[in-house]
């Protein structure tokens, strides 16, 4: 259908987007790589010497790197676990006949539209605060000691906050997928005597695989770079207890003005994200082709 002429026109129409994205990818990334080999701190004027891989050495051997890497993994997996399991359960519930389904949907989806700084601050102050928070009040009224969420279990608290933001997303997608499930197939299985559990395991779950994959892919992209929630709640602390890779690199770059070290950290983050990306894209590619 496409002629030579329209092909050339098409290329012309695609090129601005491609050129801009290429530029956005290559220029800053090349600069980061270049800086990562320099002894360059904004607080120390003077020549920026080439110091080889020393920035990488310092970054990777710093104990806070190991902590941050571990925290990143726990944060991503924790939120993924809560949101996919919770999302499947909630979607199954919302798919049942009930009164006022539309309103419940609206209530459930709402947290997704709340900006990260707002949700983090609301949770931190009005719920998790050990003196004035609602959780502290409930603890008191049950005769318990209030739990200081953000200083005693900072990472867990951040996981809760982030999971609250992403549970609606998973639920909505899985609910949409459930609603496209062929009810005749279900009825046929029921008539053949399949139990509710085996119907769930052998019909519902396989049907949902593709959407669960999509949920995991999209959430992982966003969860790897959780930042605002940490900044306004714990500042990565106490110590480095809730510092993820994004926050660690941010601290080194914009709080310590260590351009060289921050750049090395940035490149490490990019490499790790790419490993995850390759893995995910394979998985997605397989699941989305069919």
């Amino acid at each position: 259908m496409a002629t030579q002429h329209s092909r050339a026109a098409a290329r012309l129409m695609i090129s601005p987007a491609v050129v801009l994205l290429l530029g956005w990818m290559i220029i800053p990334l090349a600069m980061t790589i270049y800086f990562s080999f320099l002894n360059y701190n904004l607080l120390h004027p003077g020549p920026h010497n080439f110091i080889g891989f020393r920035n990488y050495y310092y970054f990777l051997t710093d104990p806070s790197f190991t902590t941050a890497l571990w925290n990143t993994i726990v944060l991503v997996l924790g939120v993924l676990l809560i949101t996919t399991v919770g999302g499947v359960l909630l979607a199954l519930l919302l798919d049942q006949p009930m009164w006022g389904q539309g309103i419940v949907r609206v209530l459930v989806i709402a947290p997704f539209f709340v900006m990260p700084t707002v949700s983090a601050l609301v949770w931190k102050n009005m719920f998790m605060n050990p003196v004035n928070g609602l959780f502290a009040y409930f603890a008191h009224s049950l005769g318990l000691q209030p739990f200081d969420f953000l200083s005693q279990a900072p990472l867990f608290s951040i996981i809760l906050i982030v999971a609250w933001q992403w549970l609606p997303f998973a639920t909505l997608i899985l609910l949409t997928a459930l609603q496209s499930l062929d009810s005749e197939q279900m009825e046929a299985a029921e008539m053949d005597g399949a139990s509710a559990i085996s119907r769930f395991l052998f019909i519902t779950i396989p049907h949902l695989t593709r959407s669960i994959t999509v949920v995991i892919l999209i959430q992982t992209i966003f969860l790897l770079s959780v930042f605002a929630e940490i900044l306004v709640t714990t500042n990565g602390g106490p110590g480095t207890a809730s510092t993820n890779l994004t926050y660690l690199v941010y601290g080194q770059s914009l709080l310590q003005y260590d351009v060289g070290g921050g750049s090395a950290g940035g490149i490490v983050a990019v490499i790790l994200a790419n490993i995850v990306a390759i893995f995910l894209m394979r998985m997605i590619g397989k699941n989305l082709e069919g």
């Binding site: 491609v18 994004t246 750049s263 990306a277």
Partner: peptide, 24 residues
């Protein structure tokens, strides 16, 4: 391929280019 490549650029963590963008 172009579409997949575009999607993959979203995989690049923003923090990887924070310093150059900030300095620029």
């Amino acid at each position: 391929d172009v579409l997949m490549w575009m999607l993959s650029t979203k995989m690049m963590p923003s923090v990887g280019v924070l310093i150059p963008i900030y300095l620029l």
